[in-house]
Amino acid sequence: MNLIDQVEQLFIQDKIDIFLGYKALDGHLLPHGFTRDRMEELKALQVSEGRYSLEKIATHLTEKHPDIRIGMIARECNLRTLNLLYTWKQLNPENIETINISCCPSPLKPHSDCSYLEPKQTGAYKKTHGIDFNADPDTFLDDFNNKNRFSRWMYEFNKCIKCYGCRNICPVCFCDECSLEHASLVEPGTLPVDVPIFHLIRATHMAGRCIDCGLCEDACPMDIPLRLLYRQVNAIVSDIFDYRPGNGTDQSPFTIIGEKTVLEPKPMDAQLEGEKEYGL
């Protein structure tokens, strides 16, 4: 059954209220919510090579309508994210239906459906002063000494224009209050960005959380090798805590933020609590 028929079936069987996929607009494939009221739109549903955080859209919808049943296109990376969001109670697995897509090329399908599978190019200047996108954390540690690593990361971080794109696209950045906008850590509204604290805060928060989708690195306009950094923090977490985000059903045992934290994930039953409070 093709994708469009599958989605149609989900609506006919009343399994979902909305389906998140992609639709072409002025030549770009953009995320779109398909609904039962406008079934004719389904003709335009496509799998896009470019990726957006469909799960992030799902968490935003769920925040407003806790009972909404959502269907979505899911690749490997989306499935890992969904798993993680379930463990942090940002989404309820009972309200999510996925249609799984394999992105990789195969004998039956010569192309890949994912922009990320294109190898990244690192320019000569970046190679000598900064960090190769395709570097592996272990070889990076072996190839450069302490001083050299420091200057390379600082070269990369100093390019940051503090656009918050990395956080905004990230499907597992779901905090109510973000440390990156906390005046005592990162001065708001000023440039240059506070380095390296801005990036080390995010690196620390991604420990035990980042599912390595690579969207942040794709989004970063300054070509900072964010994925490499988060891969390393998660290698450390895996070493010390034996935990790999996105795999199981447990929350990460590692929280650098301690017991009193403003990083509380948003409660899913916010609406219910509100109703209780106001005696509705």
């Binding site: 990076f140 690593r149 390379r152 080390l200 390393q232 923090v233 010390i240």
Partner: peptide
């Protein structure tokens, strides 16, 4: 280990 990776 994070600081080591970063160069401190």
């Amino acid at each position: 280990e994070l600081l080591t990776f970063f160069g401190l």
